[in-house]
Design a protein around this nucleic acid. Structure first.
Lengths: 331, 331
DNA sequence: GCTGACTACTAGAACGTTATAGCGTCGGCG
DNA sequence: CGCCGACGCTATAACGTTCTAGTAGTCAGC
């Protein structure tokens, strides 16, 4: 067992190569100022000793960490798509990501606290329930980018999808198919719910269908959609737009169990384009958020704040996109 | 904009409280050696200045990082459950987690490399395709715990669920219900597939049903299950055990589209107990891996290696558990 | 042969902590 | 009264880097 063997440091490499620590440092980070012969020798020795730079020491010394902290929720499938995009965007900008997860037993405050200790230069928060005042006190320390979350604050940057527009796209699609009696199952107090609801209302009004507008309370879970479906059964509309895909799945299930055909009797539109909606037997028409655009925008905002370049907009709103699958059809 | 304001350090707090840095350090980490009056004053000043310890400097100095690196795949829902358990287990043992994600565009090597720079004391790898030789070269540097992955190596600890036993539980359950013609849709070359396949074969043999054993090639995806179902349609068995839940979902869909009732005509058992299997309209009988036990075992193994206490077993195998839902019934 | 510019390299001071050793001061005990 | 130990606190040396300021050495030009 040689795990007791201390790992190699710059000094070890320097000693073995017969040069100074400073030179090795220069070589390791590819800076100019050292001859090619020495450079090669150092590289060779470093490889042989299995030298790995210590990011902690490096960042401690150089003040900057080039680290973006990300708080995500393990339970939210959409967050994982976003992570993928964020890694790409961060790499393009020359930053690294440190992740801190929110789990059922690990709150946002803890997650943020860990990142603060890691000296990241900015924080990217996915969703979350933090109160505006807490957000502000974090933002006093370092730039904060809140994604998928309304935050009308001067001190926090916001990146989210245009939820109102997404709802309108759903309604437009249904109206184009010939629907008039279109209901909406909302998401209660959850982030984005209010926007999606008003988007729906506005679209209905715009199409002159204001008197057909009908909003049923819902939520984020499958059972919320199921409950909403039961309410609708008494007087079923010909189409429903639902707060998210999971809830739409619950709604679909109850509708079908009660003998209604989708899309024959009722058309259904979800929201988020999660992997769930892509399953063959669900194949849900839904509204997709542009993950890559959102991730890129978030990193851009973070970098702009960190590097104090031109302020740029406080809020970036990305238009979503309708994905037509097989749960919508002519009434 | 006061974000230019440098963040408070021990020295700042010390100056403001009129004591030495050393004393503040002692107070901050709750060590004995400072009076209660001073302690209180320091705490008060630290709070007022918004002091946050710099984990980098702290860990740099104290040699140990008490950090466990975790490599997970954003695409794998099961990894997220595992993360939840791991956070809990790590906290109980006084360690912290640093996460590094594998995404479609970010490989395992990159993910591991990042963690190596962070000076974690051990690595926990979820699944993954790293070759044994690569695993070995990492294990030469620091303890490695491979989860859900067979690795017959002396230098790597392994924690996984007893896949063979899980398959046997599935078969036992079906046999108890009265099934005899039970097929298995496998997972090709994926991790765990071989064990689940032989577990199935063994159980069939044990029940004297060797001649009814029937293995159909499958995979991890929904479409793999769908393809397998099409093969089975020519001569449908009365029950099927499937490599995982997602594949089982595809299989279910094709069976039902072809007029077969589940569980009336065919019973189906999945594997993993993912959130998918819990959806009301899927409600899949499945084999659940004991997430908490696996997470705890992984952290225990890691800590044992780090602290060089009694070696303990190289491999920990956790028994899975059958979860009966509504896709299985008497034939 | 001397100056000046350039290159290749190095010494040494940070960065923000923790750990060790040491220094007063005070109370108690012989 | 003097000594010891405990207590409260501080000075200082690490930890592994990066960075600034510098020291040789080489070469061109006059």
């Amino acid at each position: 067992m040689q795990s007791a063997e201390r790992r190699a440091t710059l000094a070890d490499v320097a000693a073995a190569a017969g040069v100074s620590v400073a030179s090795v440092s220069i070589v390791m980070r590819g800076a100019p100022g050292v001859g090619s012969a020495t450079r090669e020798r150092v590289l060779e020795v470093a490889g042989r000793l299995g030298y790995q730079p210590d990011s902690r020491a490096r960042l401690l010394r150089s003040g900057r960490s080039r680290l973006l902290g990300v708080v995500f929720d393990v339970r939210h499938p959409f967050h994982h798509d976003l992570l993928t995009g964020l890694y790409d965007a961060a790499e393009r900008s020359g930053y690294q990501l440190t992740l801190s997860a929110v789990t059922p037993r690990r709150g946002e405050r803890t997650a943020v606290g860990d990142l603060l200790q890691d000296r990241c230069e900015a924080l990217v928060l996915f969703g979350g329930q933090l109160r505006a005042s807490e957000l502000a006190s974090i933002a006093a320390r370092l730039p904060v980018i809140a994604m998928m979350r309304g935050a009308r604050r001067r001190d926090v940057d916001v990146v989210h999808s245009d939820d109102a527009l997404g709802s309108q796209q759903a309604v437009d699609h249904l109206v184009a198919l010939g629907h008039r009696r279109i209901a909406h199952v909302d998401g209660g107090t959850l982030a984005g719910s209010a926007e999606r609801r008003t988007g729906y209302q506005e679209a209905m009004r715009r199409h002159g269908l204001g008197e057909h507008a009908r909003i049923v309370p819902g939520g984020a879970g499958e059972e919320d959609g199921a409950r909403a479906a039961e309410r609708l059964l008494a007087d079923p509309p010909t189409a429903v737009t639902v707060f998210n895909d999971l809830s739409a799945t619950g709604l679909l299930d109850v509708l079908r169990r009660n003998g209604l055909d989708v899309p024959g009797d009722v058309s259904v539109v979800g929201y988020d384009d999660t992997s769930l909606s892509r399953l063959a037997h669900i194949d849900l028409t839904t509204i997709a958020q542009d993950v890559d655009a959102m991730a890129t925008a978030a990193v851009d905002r973070a970098v702009a704040r960190i590097e104090q370049t031109t302020p740029g907009p406080r809020a970036v709103i990305i238009p979503p996109r309708l994905v037509v699958r097989s749960t919508t059809a002519h009434p």
